[in-house]
Simulated scan of single mutants.
Amino acid sequence: MALFFDAEWFDARLAERGLSRRVLAAAAGMSEADINLAFKDQRELSAGEVGVFAELLGVDAREVADRAGISTPTPGQASPVDERLAALERRVAALEAELARLRRV
């Protein structure tokens, strides 16, 4: 598992497919500045970007996440913050439903 963004690995995969960083950025909806920051390990990839990179490079999303750094999420992997937010949203929805029920009584 890479501790930092493995730019050499990504560049090699891009070269194998005849692609450039610009194409990778465009496919992921990133600006050239964003892709350059990611390759310099100054910006983390989102789970969605990991998924796009994996598809374009023809590798597993876990491989992309590992090569992008240890804290990069893979698609479908919720972070603890995302899980807490989802739990809070469920509680708010339940409270709103209960409040609506009480207003009808």
Score class of each variant (00 low, 15 high):
Q77R: 15
F4M: 10
A12C: 01
A38V: 15
F5C: 15
D11P: 00
Q77S: 14
L37M: 13
R22L: 08
D60A: 12
R62C: 01
S79V: 10
R91S: 09
M1D: 00
L95H: 08
D82G: 11
F5W: 06
A94T: 06
L85A: 05
L88K: 13
A86G: 04
V50W: 07
S79F: 04
A7D: 05
E16G: 02
D6N: 15
R62S: 09
L102Y: 03
T72M: 06
E89T: 05
R84K: 14
R62D: 14
V105I: 02
L3A: 03
F53C: 07
E32I: 07
E89W: 03
E55N: 13
A87R: 13
V50P: 08
D41M: 06
L3K: 01
R43P: 09
A28T: 02
E96A: 06
S31V: 11
A33R: 15
E98R: 06
V105L: 12
D41K: 06
R84N: 05
R101E: 15
T74D: 00
R67K: 15
N36Y: 10
L102V: 07
A61T: 10
D11R: 11
F4H: 06
A100L: 12
E98T: 00
L37P: 02
V105P: 01
R84A: 15
E8P: 00
E32V: 14
L88C: 10
L95D: 06
P73D: 09
V92D: 03
P80L: 09
R91V: 05
A33D: 14
E83N: 04
V81P: 00
L37A: 15
Q42C: 09
V59M: 09
A93L: 10
A7N: 03
Q42I: 00
A33T: 10
A26S: 08
D34R: 01
R43S: 08
P80Y: 07
E63F: 01
E55H: 10
W9T: 04
R84G: 01
Q77G: 04
P80G: 09
E8M: 05
K40S: 12
E96P: 01
A61I: 03
D66A: 05
A15F: 03
S71N: 14
L14G: 00
V59W: 07
A15G: 01
P73N: 04
G48A: 13
L85G: 00
R13W: 02
T72Q: 08
F5H: 04
T74I: 14
A54R: 06
G48Y: 08
V92F: 06
D60G: 01
E44G: 11
R90I: 01
V81E: 13
T72C: 14
G18D: 03
M30N: 02
D6W: 04
P75K: 12
T74V: 15
L102I: 12
Q77A: 15
R104L: 05
G51A: 07
